[in-house]
């Protein structure tokens, strides 16, 4: 009997879900909800609504279609912004880390531009592109760009010279060939970590990007705060968290699969 308990709790980490961690995690969430419930009893609903009240608003917003519409609107600028920013960031990071010439040329520029927060670009987004999805996508792309630039740069910079020597001695004789056959696969762990971090960060950036008036989940959040409907604010925060959870779990699964060799 005791042995079966041991296997259940101790060593079940290889294949499936670790039951002990799952159990403790669920306990943690329950504890948090309990604290929240207790705290809400001592505060009026416009300061801190109960978990139940938030859940009710969540269901109402979901059923009315408002949530779905907001979500689709957010994804409409989040997805292209993330894809474009990620692609350009990786491209610049790989190029600069691989080529000394590109590195020397662009490093001063990078150091000047790097500290500019994506939010500071709202003025540009409005002036150049307008109060629309493309404008919001621009801000999101700026966020994705730097994360992926640094991840790719670091990854490529860390590729050992010997891999390149081996590849050359086996007949790879162009820079493009070396990048494709050696540099990118060797730097892939860092690059994928960058992509994963970027995807999450960009999802949080939709709040900032929608600040200027573009529709989406962030916009709903603002409207709700301005109306002092704390329950709706919390319902939309919950929506953002759930979407992030699904995204990150999905990307994490892809990451494990692609990097099975580690």
């Amino acid at each position: 009997m005791s042995t079966s308990l041991e296997t259940d709790f101790g060593t079940d980490v290889g294949g499936g879900v670790d039951r002990r961690r799952l159990l403790l995690g669920a306990l943690g969430v329950l504890g948090f909800l309990l604290l929240w419930e207790v705290a809400s009893r001592f505060n009026p609903p416009y300061v801190l609504p109960s978990p139940r009240a938030v859940a009710d608003v969540f269901v109402v917003e979901l059923r009315s279609g408002a949530m779905g519409t907001a979500l689709v609107a957010s994804v409409t600028h989040w997805l292209p912004g993330t894809v474009v920013g990620t692609t350009l960031g990786i491209a610049l990071g790989v190029t600069m880390a691989y080529s000394d010439l590109a590195d020397d040329l662009a490093t001063p520029l990078v150091r000047v531009l790097r500290p500019v927060p994506p939010l500071a670009l709202i003025g540009f987004a409005i002036a150049w592109i307008g109060l629309n999805h493309a404008g919001a996508a621009f801000i999101i792309a700026a966020g994705a760009f730097w994360i992926n630039y640094y991840a790719a740069y670091g990854g490529v910079d860390g590729v050992s010279e010997e891999f390149l020597d081996v590849a050359k001695s086996l007949g790879v004789d162009t820079d493009l060939g070396l990048i494709r056959k050696v540099v990118l696969p060797a730097a892939l762990p860092e690059i994928i970590t960058g992509i994963r971090t970027g995807i999450g960060r960009c999802w949080m950036l939709i709040i900032a990007a929608e600040l200027m008036g573009v529709p989406g989940v962030g916009r709903e959040l603002y409207t709700a705060s301005q109306n002092l409907s704390v329950d709706a604010v919390l319902a939309y925060i919950l929506l953002m968290s759930l979407v992030y959870l699904v995204l990150d779990t999905g990307v994490g699964a892809v990451q494990n699969r692609v990097l099975a060799w580690q």
Binding site: E162, V166, S169, L170, G171, V182, P185, A186, W261
Partner: peptide, 15 residues
């Protein structure tokens, strides 16, 4: 490719 090289630290491509 005419010069086949074998290193002490192998340098196999881990991926």
């Amino acid at each position: 490719p005419d010069l086949g090289i074998v290193f002490q630290e192998y340098h196999l491509f881990p991926w």
